[in-house]
Nucleic acid binder design. Structure first.
Lengths: 325, 325
DNA sequence: TTGAAAGCGGTACCAA
DNA sequence: TTGGTACCGCTTTCAA
């Protein structure tokens, strides 16, 4: 592999001159031509390690997330990447599969890969662990979608409680008194917030909470499918069900139809996240739509601000969802 | 940020000794204690750039893929990461969103991030472009799921043609003569292979191909949903439909049910990829199940072989799918 | 504008 | 075992 020294020798100039040319400073035109020729001939590329060693930055952003295959995260990540690319950064995604050990390790590894900043969708790390791992590296971090208690950095969240409140309330207003919720595990803060929204809607409408109508498990098709079957086994069946994420929604309406029931005549359903799916169905399923794009763009902008030296107080932004009927 | 020099000074030993201790060589025990104390006190961490500059490796593997949110890729990536981690490597995922410009850029960026090897799920890059970008870096690469024509490196694929052949044939054997296919775009090689399997099954069973029953579009719910509606508008309707990926399958059976039709009585359906979904339905949908785990493990192993110096001929492996009835 | 030289933070060789 | 030192490849300062 050719080095800057080889280029300098071949072009008959000094290393410094080559370096300047590479980095966009002006160089006398005959030398520029010679350097360009030498670079071409040797197929020279700057060594990224050497460059980063000197500058201590890499123009890389880490994205640390729990689950690579949720469509929600896919959309968010695409939005993030777009903004970063426009500003000359590239994104390195690291997925910890909702596993605590991997969450630690992958954070460590991203740091070793030389990231300049971090977009972090946390799950199980404590603020202490985070600090221990990042201490000394001064890596600006923006938490996204979820937050770690006590971690004092920028965060961009979605208003999950309000969204599910509104979905539940809309079913109640249609006359339903037995409204169920099928949601993700309590350990994930977004799931918990959605549960809170559900409970508040019931209580605001003077409906007693029945825990047989309150199912929480993981964020999968199976949860939605089996959750519905479980609801059908309850003596006083629900007449409407709110789903709390993409896969649960699909599992739910599939189970409804497997039983030969019609939506909304036999059972009313409110979907979550899978807007394209729900709006295409006949009749369309009402659905909570999260602002994935805006979430990504906002978080990216917060991080870019920090990378450019902004040092104000940590910002916390909560974006509203929209309900699509 | 403390450097190795600071540690050496505080521990009253030389830099070399500290370096040796860090890298696992034996050091006299009193010095070891002093070094450990100094590291703790200064909260010292080796600078990844400096280390990589010397060794020219990073213990990082790049995974370059087109679509982060397909469940298929999610499972594959998880399997890859597991193997790499067991061997001391970590994975950096880069998603190019099926965009040619980004495919180039992200490959370049992964190289700049200092990857030692690459798992590559290609889409639109030519062998020339690949060589141009990687020339000089000697980054061992394993192509996965798809291949670039003329790119001579290890590859691990899935036998898509056989899988769809078998799915189509099974429907024909049940008596169907009008069997449709809804698949992804022709530009993606896996989609094309699936189309080939379909066409061959028809011809082997003396069924004339009817291009009204042959729909290809992108790999989305909408393709499955609208594709089915389009099929229902054909004068001589199909009696069975094969789907060619996850989202298409879900779109397809949702559309079937939106029309009030029953599976399999009114229309027969063969799913693809969404094994959990299909097997849970009542009655279960037959489905093509890809060997995601094995695909990931095999590709990872091929890459590790190369990183450990194996230099045999490029290997091409094609893994079979299984049909689940 | 140009070039010499001093680092950036480690690693590894070699002599002690 | 230990420590001095050259070196990895590039950037940047400073003097010419």
């Amino acid at each position: 592999m050719a080095t800057i020294k080889d280029v300098a020798r071949l072009a008959n100039v000094s290393m410094s001159t080559v370096s300047k040319y590479i980095n966009g400073q002006t160089v006398r035109s005959d030398k520029e031509i010679a350097i360009r020729a030498a670079i071409r001939e040797l197929n020279y590329r700057a060594n990224p390690f050497a460059r980063s060693l000197k500058s201590q930055r890499n123009r890389a952003i880490g994205i640390l997330l729990p689950d690579i295959s949720a469509p929600f995260f896919g959309t968010v990540v695409t939005a993030l990447e777009k903004v970063f690319r426009e500003h000359g950064y590239h994104a390195l995604i690291s997925c910890y599969s909702s596993n605590h050990g991997m969450e630690r390790d992958n954070l460590r590894h991203l740091i070793c890969a030389g990231i300049d900043g971090l977009i972090y969708i946390p799950e199980n790390l404590s603020a202490e662990e985070y600090h221990e791992l990042t201490a000394g590296y001064s890596i600006p971090t923006v938490q996204m979608d979820r937050i770690i208690q006590g971690l004092d950095c920028d965060a961009v969240l979605v208003d999950n409680a309000d969204a599910v409140y509104a979905a539940t309330a809309s079913l109640i207003k249609k006359g339903h008194r037995r409204v169920a919720l099928i949601s993700g595990a309590k350990s994930v803060s977004t799931a918990k917030e959605r549960q809170v929204g559900y409970l508040r809607a019931l209580s605001d409408h003077d409906i007693l909470f029945d825990d047989a109508l309150f199912i929480c498990n993981d964020h999968t098709f199976a949860t939605g499918y089996q959750g519905f079957e479980q609801l059908m086994a309850v003596p006083d069946r629900p007449t409407a069900v709110v789903a709390a994420n993409y896969d649960i929604t699909i599992g739910l309406f599939t189970a409804v139809r497997d039983r030969g029931l019609r939506i909304p005549e036999d059972i009313d359903v409110f979907g979550f996240d899978c807007t394209q799916v729900c709006t295409m169905m006949k009749p369309p399923l009402p659905v909570v739509s999260q602002p994935e794009e805006l979430l990504g763009r906002t978080a990216a902008q917060y991080l870019l601000d920090r990378l450019q030296g902004y040092s104000g107080e940590p910002r916390l932004t909560r974006l509203p969802c929209s309900l699509i009927y």
